[in-house]
Simulated assay, not measured.
Amino acid sequence: MKKLLLCLLGSISPLYAGDSMPDGLVIIQKPIIFDEMRKALTLQYMQQHYGMVQDEPVIDPKMVVVHWTVIPTFEQTFAAFNPPELPAARDGIRAGGNLNVSSQFVIDRDGTVYQLMPETTMARHTIGINYTAIGIENIADGNSLPMTEAQLAANTKLITYLAGKYPIKYVLGHSEYHRFRDTDWWKETDANYFTEKNDPDIAFMQRLRSSLSALSLKPLP
């Protein structure tokens, strides 16, 4: 029997249905602005970086990329992702276009899961593979804010849920995305557009993939 789960956050009422929801997974809807400007910038990004000309900025998810924010709170992270255009403070990646960075999900330090965008709408979070990757940001920085046990559990439940909806083949940390550069998955058209990342730490990713051992994931290239 289908299950309906209703959660409230202010005036936002998310509704999820399906028997594939892992026990204890609650996804709170907190959408960022996705207006005509953001749509146009996303379509422009897809054409410029992946050679993909589409009417809608939709993706076919085959990967999940796990990140940490470095930003210390969910509220500040939401404020950073909400504007459609990249702020002036992000000049280091402005060469990649004016589309603001974002992700489909953010997990707070207590394990609360927020959905900022539809799973199949492209978000700018990982160079070269945004066209097929769902992004999960975690409120952490690896130093004063290490990844928490609650975040490990929440990532496990969320990715299990996503793998039940989509043919997810890989789960990787942002620090591991370079491993796809010499594969057919990499579609970045600008060979010079690349940044080194360290999130999350490899020990966390190893624990996360171990917790997902029941899924049919492929080893990273």
Rank of each mutant, 00 (worst) to 15 (best):
N98E: 15
L99T: 01
V101H: 10
I107K: 07
D108R: 08
D110S: 14
T112Y: 12
T112A: 11
V113I: 08
Y114L: 13
Q115M: 11
Q115R: 15
P118H: 10
E119V: 14
E119R: 08
E119T: 11
T121D: 12
A123G: 14
H125E: 00
I127H: 08
I129V: 12
N130F: 06
Y131K: 03
A133K: 05
G135F: 06
E137L: 15
E137H: 11
N138E: 12
I139E: 05
A140C: 09
G142R: 01
S144V: 12
M147V: 15
M147S: 09
T148L: 10
T148Q: 14
E149H: 13
E149F: 03
E149L: 12
Q151L: 11
N155L: 11
N155V: 04
L158P: 07
I159R: 05
I159A: 02
T160I: 06
Y161F: 13
A163W: 00
K165A: 07
K165Y: 02
P167A: 05
P167N: 00
P167E: 04
I168M: 02
Y170S: 01
V171Q: 02
V171C: 01
L172W: 03
R181G: 01
D182C: 07
T183I: 00
T183E: 02
T183A: 03
W185H: 01
T189P: 05
T189H: 08
A191C: 12
N192H: 13
N192E: 09
Y193E: 06
Y193C: 07
F194L: 08
F194M: 09
E196C: 09
K197N: 15
N198C: 10
P200N: 07
P200E: 09
D201L: 02
A203S: 14
A203H: 10
Q206A: 08
Q206S: 06
R207I: 03
L208Y: 00
L208P: 04
S210T: 09
S210P: 01
S210G: 14
S211Y: 03
S211F: 00
L212D: 05
A214M: 11
S216W: 02
S216N: 15
K218M: 05
P219G: 00
